[in-house]
Design a binder for these strands. Sequence first.
DNA 1: CTGCTATGATTTTTT
DNA 2: ATCATAGCAG
Length: 760
Amino acid sequence: MDILDFVTKNMNPPQKDAIETLNGPLLILAGAGSGKTRVLTHRMANIIGQGAAAPDGILCVTFTNKAAKEMEHRIYKILGDMGIMVREQLWVNTFHSFCVRVLRSHITLLDYKQFFTIYDSSDQLSQIKKVMTALGINDKMYPAKNFQARISNAKMLGLTPEGLERSSKRLMDQKTVEVYRAYEVEMKRANSLDFDDLLMKTYDLFRMYPDVLKMYQEKFQYIMVDEYQDTNHIQYLIVQLLAKAHRNLCVVGDEDQSIYSWRGADIKNILDFEKDFPEAKVVKLEENYRSSANIVNAATAVIKNNSQRKDKTLFTSNPEGDLINVREERNEYDEAKFVAKTIQTMMNEGEGSYNDYAVFYRTNAQSRVLEEQLRTLAIPYRLVGGVRFYERMEIKDILSFMKLAINPADDIALKRIINVPARGIGKTTIDKIEEFSAQKNMTMYEGARNAVEQKIFNAGTTGKIRRFLDLMDELQSSATSFKLTDFYHIVLDRTEYLAALKKDESPEAQARIENLEELDNAIAQFAKERGEEASLISFLEEMALVSDVDSLDQEQNSVTLMTLHISKGLEYPYVFVVGVEENLFPSGRATESENPEDVEEERRLAYVGMTRARQKLWLTYTKMRRVWGQEQFNPPSRFIKEIPPSFISFKSAAEAPRFVNRYGDSSGDLYESKWGSTNSDRNKARNTGGDDFDTQDFPDYDGDGGGMNYSKGMRVRHPTFGVGTVYATEGAGDNLKVSVMFTDNTVKKFVVKYARLERV
DNA sequence: CTGCTATGATTTTTT
DNA sequence: ATCATAGCAG
């Protein structure tokens, strides 16, 4: 069969167009569920099949490792079906892994040693604190995290300390420049790169060494960038450089799914692609193959409220499907119970397997109650995200030993493990080593050795440090002479790390041992996959760049719990989005922001969440929710109101009728008075024993509720203190209290019944 | 130096 | 409410 026929088989016209268009700049606007990955992989197969470029002459950049792996796998499959054998390694990478690949070959040009280590953000924070101490900057007045964010922002804009100093003076103060500059010196001394450096140094490399850039420009005849709406400025710059020679740049994205602006993603990159490349061809993939028509139409109606968009409308030929279930619950416990019960009921009726269900939430803290309720009903679940595996203490400890063994300049790793498990080298000693090393312009490893030789410390301390150095010397030589899998066990054994945990009989220690076993499995798996290539350095690289979704194992039969952010790119037949309330989703930060774009990003997040569902979608909200130990009463999210009622089936379990008073208190009255009673009369008549109350219309949330309705963000006036903003509410009925923050930033708590508050 | 208690901060998260 | 970190007493 003809190559073109093969790669465009079963494709719709725009998909075909995208696959066939190989030369020149191409912008593919791919709506949710429009077969984007299929198009990308087939387009790449087409390039190879047509002989337009060799397999390693194409660069394909994705957002996550998981996407990269999946794409690579699919391309091999398609090429295999076409009878094409590929020997070269494909360049399907994330931006970061692409940059690591480049830097491993050329970083010596930038005056780093080849075996650099990669710092994650907590390593980075430690490094910044170290620098601040050296500069005598007070952490209280200038929190290290602020510097971390500013340095990261600067790097994402491609700014060096000097560049930062020259640019936008009013935003960037001199202190940041100072810390940034010293941080760079320390990082180079430690022969380490942070995540932003991977991009920034690659960009520097390309700018400083035009011949290196030229080599890659010529090598990559075709470049494809996935999730282009979430690229940041430095990524944009790198892409622009690489694409300059051939201009065969294909970017794929969906401006409606841009949800990482807080991380530097610049939606303008995709919105302005046609300005950057006036000759660009634009292909829109607007047909959704994933979800039922009701889901597609509801999500479309929501996203239409955004102004920052291209003209693109998702449609589907899928059947209408079920209505979207909007569910009101009393509080987060009831909400979680509802989710768990619904899953249990549906499973009993034989609807799918646990794998087919997912629960999304805006913040990680919301997962707790859900886990509790799922556990109660013995529903298997897995939680994606939260505390990452490789960020756990024991994992980081062991990896630090391994890192230090190949990069003795890594002071942060050394500081982390010099006294782990406790070997009597305390803070004072570590500080002295650090100071001593800085004076002599040495790494801490060299400094410690020097201190031992010069007998700076007393005999006891000197002995302890010497024993640590001997241990590290031994590990250093083991690192090169043993296989990775064996080396891991040597580390566990020789550091006595495992022995220390085994001595500790607490359940926490037990969990740590299990995690270390899991790491053992991961290493074995890695060794199996990579074979001969399974070097320590490549393993550490993988550990630094891997994330939790990457290991999301679809085989395991369990319900998936994750934040809306992580859900991007995934799909499930049955999806619950919980906590769809104002000030939670959209987040309080977005609703209080003067910048309307902040709410637009939240809306995109809603769009992403809704379009993950194939068949059924639930949106739930509660009337009361405990946040940071405080009760909050938030109205349902504006995103729910943006869905036309014809797509919705609304049910409430919170409108408890007055005469059914199960708890012997006045909670029934509470909700009536607080939330208005638009539907309560009908509900009373309808109540047949279940706790569902069908309603045609939404309750009137905007009702004043007789002055009893206070929610976060509301402006109120107090006769003595003046105008302020409601910060939190607690209690109920006569005991309802509100905390109000006044213009001078003082917070005062009032009992509503007594304080003569008035709404502004 | 170690272990305990007080303090503070807390969307989202690749890489 | 909860977790991590900082500071202090033992």
